[in-house]
Amino acid sequence: MTERLPGWRDIPIGGVAFKPSEEYKTGDWRVFRPVLNKEKCNRCYLCHFYCPEGAIKVLDTGDIEIDYDYCKGCLICVNECPRGALESVQE
């Protein structure tokens, strides 16, 4: 590990966590990536609810966006999409 970790005086007491999990990218766990075909998507948002990571976001426009920083490639979304709008592609 190259990063120098803070000493005991410089971390919060009581084991209070001081970094958000978003700083830890889990995208590199992925072997297959889900790819969205926007044409086929009917915005049912099931993929959003089924995603264990919260990596499938619903934008203000109502469109779906996959955040590959966190997607672990479980492919639940590909398996569950009722319209077949998601397909898996090897990384």
Binding site: P20, S21, E22, E23, Y24, K25, T26, W29, R30, F49, Y50, C51, P52, E53, G54, A55, D67, D69, Y70, K72, G73, C74, L75, I76
Partner: peptide
């Protein structure tokens, strides 16, 4: 996101 539950974890959902 950024948690480290397994890919496809039911508990995470």
């Amino acid at each position: 996101p950024g948690h480290r539950l397994c890919a496809g974890c039911g508990a995470a959902i």
